[in-house]
Each structure stands twice: as C-alpha cells, then as structure tokens.
Design a protein around this nucleic acid. Structure first.
Lengths: 245, 245
DNA sequence: CGGACCGTTGATTCAGTTCAAGTCATGTGG
DNA sequence: CCACATGACTTGAACTGAATCAACGGTCCG
C-alpha cells in the first residue's frame, strides 16, 4: 500500500511503529493500536544540513520535533551577543518544548550534522493526548524529564569545577550513546570544543586542557573528536572528588 | 453553606474562584464553570513552618503544590553533600513538577518562611486535564515555563559574571513581587546570602560584597534582608555591560 | 538575655580566563 | 586533484575575578 504512494508521500509515512526509536521517543509504553493512532500525529519529516536551524529564537511555535537521525544543539543568546548552549540533543529526543510556554521559541535549535526530524504538530498532539491516556502521561514525563535534566545542568554549572563538569558531560554522553545501542566507550563528539565549553560554562581552552589532562591521567583517550573512555570508574569518582593537583 | 461545614473541612474548601492567586496559578484563562470543576482538584491544604520540607528528594511523587502563601526554595544535593538551590518559588507558583518524570522527587522543597500550599493530586489533575482543554493547555504552559526559566538560569550560571548574576536575580525578584501586587522597588529577601549564592553559583561572601558594591554605586539600598532598587535602569544595563572596575 | 546564626569586610590564593602562537584538519575553488 | 584558506584544537604564559581563610559586628530567635 505504501508502495503505491508517490515517493514524497511515501517518505511522509514511515511509521512510528516501524521506527527503531520507538522506545526512546513519545510512543513509550503505548499499545499497538495507540501507536497506530500516534502515527496520525507525525505530519511530515524534515531534513537539515549541518549548521542549519530547525527553528530560531523568537520564531512562532507550532510543532515539536522528534530527532530521527543526527543531533542538535539548542542555544540562547543574550542581547550583547553572548551565546550559551543550553543542551545537546540526539536521536529520539524531542526538540521545541521551550516554545509551548509563550508560543514563541526562546532558543534556537541548530543541526550539528546532517539530520532528520519528525514534525509533530502541537495542536494535534494536545488533542490526541486528551484521548490517549498513555500519550498524555508520556508527554508529561518528557516535559518533566527536561526540567530534571536542566536541574542537573544547573548543579553542574553552579557547584562543579571544570574537571567535574567535563567528566559529568562525557559520562552523560556515553550513557546516551549506550541507550541508543552505540558504544558507550568509544564515540565521536558532534560538537566543537567551543560548544562544549559554552554548555559547561567554560572557555574552549579550558575544555581542551582538561581533556588533555584526563588523557595524561589515563582516564580517556582523545583524538580530535574521537573519545574513548578508558577508566569509567575513576571518571565517575572524579565528579565527587576532583583530582587534587 | 460553607459555614455549616466543620472548621477543618471548611478550610479545605476555600475555592480557587475565591483565591486572589487565580490568575497566577493553574486556573489561568478558564471559564467560570471550568474553574468550578478545578476546585474538585484541590484536595487539601497544608501549612508548613519555616525550614520545614514540603517534600524531600527521593520521596514518592503524588501531588503538585500551589503556593498559597509564603515562599520556598528547591534544592538538589550531590552525593558528597554539596547542595545547590535550583529555584526560589513564591505565591501562586507550582512546586513538584520535578517528580512527574520518574515518580520520585529529585529536589527537596523547603519553606523559607511559614507557608501554606494547596495540594493538587496529580492523578486527578491528569484526568481533569483530559476533559478540560484549557486546563491541559495551561498545565503544559506551566511545565514549559519552568523549562524556560531554568534555561535562563543556565545562561546566568554559564556566561554571567557575579555582578550580572546578582542584578538579574534582583530584577527577577522585583518583577515577580510586582506581578503579585507588591512593591517591585522595595522588598524583603526571604532567603539568606548563602542561599542566594548557592542559587547563583557564588559564595555568600561574594553575594555580600556585590550587594555592598551595588549600594556604593547607588544602584540599590541594602539593609539586611531589605532591598530597595534605586536605579533600575542602570541595574538592567549591568546585565549587558558589567561595571568595569 | 544569651548564643547561634547571619552578614560584612579584608587579605591572600587559585582556578579558569585571556592573550598569543603555532599545529593540524578540512573543504573549496582553481 | 592539489593548494591554499579557514576553522578547530593544543599548549604556554600572564592575568584576574571569585574563592578561601579569617576576624569581627549585628540580629534574631528560643
């Protein structure tokens, strides 16, 4: 049946039920029939090139976006031009939640590599959430999870030292790669040192130095954007008791 | 009719429609009849003494709390005991959103003064949100607003200098007091210098020094916990261009 | 009314920034 | 397909904003 649709429409209809991100995305824990109904939600998909904006700050909000492939950063800009990365999002994660509050986006979402998202029209999501209990519950959890995530970033920025921030960052990335079936030990950073620094409240030089330092200590191996975690336990211990010298 | 109920029950039934916080709390923008239905939601109220916990980290989540009177801080604790204040909440604001994600609270909520909250059982809220469109919409906005608020704290912690952080903090408080019908120019801090510092990622000495500095500059008057904003414009300007000396 | 907490201020230290120089990688146009 | 330009990363040296350590005054609560 799908095969009879013209190619562009066929592309629109790759179903949630067929998507290997199902258990990371909105349809978590839903029955088969509910997932079928959710598929109505996914209007279109959108491809983005590296550095392209999925949405910009102050643009009107109408949709959420589920990342199907690739990764993004979200950034907020101060009037004087200073920019802060507020998050890095990868496959299966939802973008756009910031817009619900005022109807305008307060961050920009920029692709870190060529990426593809599922467009979830918000009005339809709200309507469907009223009908499907599990979808409502899951959506609320996603919103709350974002609140919790940001709280741990606040912790990181407010009380941790540079080493601890980097360690927490690497472990968090590793854990998310692992949850997606990739190696949690060896991975490629999709963002620059400057973007990492912006996220962690550090300068790019500090990020670079700290990574080198970790390498000297045998905690990780760094080769450009390729990271290998050699001693996860010590890295984890670092978060509570930073290297003392 | 209310008067015929025993005192304890009467207390339970002070209605949203009678509450002067209505336009700050969940019932924003609802019709009279919908507000009447929301009143079913508000199970009980709870009074807390200063320093008392409304909920503790890791405690099971079943309810949200609307602050009826008083104020709170939310804190998150690292395993080594370091603590971070993640927010200050005042009248009309909602507490407990962090628990939705996992069913356990990830922060503790502590009263900064003798306070009172309305208990909103979460299961009932979800059920009612499925029926009342406006309630659902408003609840999602509240969740999103918290995400946005935390993003601006991330900005503050990640890219601002001590002076800017304090200025942003004071202006934010002023704006919230004003929204509640209090003076946005003169107010009393409900929290200690240490708590402010924890929130802003500064030490209490830095908070104290910076406040003194603002006073020398004629930006504010400080007397213990009483603050008076003398020059709002310069304070605001500070956020983009910190005092250079 | 006494004691613990809260806040202020000063001197010193230090983690991270800033400035600078140079290497390496990437990708674009000739 | 190479050459060159640009952006990304590393490392070093000097600087600085905020932390730390310390001492003291004020206040508020029990």
């Amino acid at each position: 049946m799908d095969l009879q649709l013209p190619p562009t429409l066929r592309q629109l209809r790759v179903a949630c039920s067929q998507c290997n991100l199902m258990e990371l995305c909105l349809p978590v824990g839903l029955s088969e029939e509910d997932v079928a109904r959710i598929e109505e939600l996914i209007g279109t998909r959108r491809k983005l090139k590296r550095h392209q904006a999925l949405y910009e700050v102050r643009s009107p909000f109408q949709a959420l976006y589920a990342i199907r492939a690739g990764s993004f950063k979200t950034t907020i800009v101060l009037e004087d031009g200073r920019e802060q990365v507020t998050g890095f999002q990868m496959t299966g994660e939802l973008l756009g939640l910031d817009g619900i509050s005022t109807g305008l986006h307060v961050v920009s979402a920029i692709a870190l590599e060529d990426s593809e998202v599922c467009v979830i029209e918000y009005a339809r999501l709200e309507a469907l959430a009223r009908e499907i209990h599990g979808l409502q519950a899951q959506f609320h959890k996603v919103l709350s999870r974002e609140i919790v995530r940001e709280q741990s970033v606040m912790m990181l920025l407010g009380t941790m030292r540079a080493e601890e921030r980097l360690a927490a960052f690497l472990l968090n990335l590793a854990q998310r790669f692992a949850a997606r079936g990739f190696s949690g030990t060896e991975f490629r950073l999709r963002m620059t040192r400057e973007e990492i620094g912006s996220y962690l409240g550090l300068k790019l030089e500090t990020v670079s130095r700290t990574l080198s330092h970790f390498q000297e200590e045998g905690l990780i191996e760094v080769q450009h954007k390729n990271i290998r975690l050699c001693d996860r336990e010590r890295l984890r211990a670092l978060i509570q008791a930073p290297l003392s010298h």
